[in-house]
């Protein structure tokens, strides 16, 4: 398949988006933020060392800054904006607020996506599994304590809901 690099389509949060006049080297993060009006994914390092740009691509949590957008034309991409219908919050998002897991909030969308991905694949993660799952998401404000607490709360809430 040889897509036209001047115009290509990305499937994000269940919708098709047309990308026009893009430079081939643009990362998925750039295209999401600057071309598709989805600024929820954040950029803080551009080299996969902070996790702020984490999205789900074909069922895997990946750093969108390391995905060449033009190569993702047939992928199913889910961003922070696509986690819930507008105005609703997931258990994870809710727990981040109630447990104080948010300070400046810049790392938060990436962390929320990474944790949603963890909990979708592991309903009762151990403490060390939680830590490993978010070891690629740097938070500079919280020291992670309230984030660990938020994950535990989200796990309990999800369990209670089952």
């Amino acid at each position: 398949m040889m897509p036209n690099t001047e115009i290509y389509n990305l499937r994000v949060n269940g919708k098709n988006h047309e990308v026009r006049d893009a430079w081939v080297g643009e990362s998925l993060l750039y295209v999401l933020r600057e071309r598709l009006g989805l600024p929820g994914s954040k950029g803080a390092c551009e080299q996969g060392e902070c996790g702020s740009c984490t999205v789900i691509m074909d069922g895997q949590a990946v750093c969108s800054c390391l995905v060449m957008a033009a190569t993702a034309i047939d992928a199913e991409i889910k961003t922070i904006e696509g986690l819930t219908p507008d105005g609703e919050l997931t258990e994870v998002q809710d727990a981040f607020i109630t447990e104080g897991g948010v300070q400046c909030g810049f790392c938060t969308p990436g962390l929320v996506v990474a944790i949603e991905h963890l909990l979708d694949n592991n309903q009762s993660p151990t403490e060390i599994e939680i830590k490993e799952a978010i070891s690629g998401n740097i938070c500079r404000c919280t020291g992670y304590g309230r984030i660990f607490e938020a994950v535990q709360t989200a796990v309990a809430t999800r369990r209670a809901a089952r």
Binding site: T79, L89, D94, I97
Partner: peptide
């Protein structure tokens, strides 16, 4: 600002 921050 929590809800806005957790939802991007």
């Amino acid at each position: 600002d929590g809800a806005a921050k957790v939802s991007g």
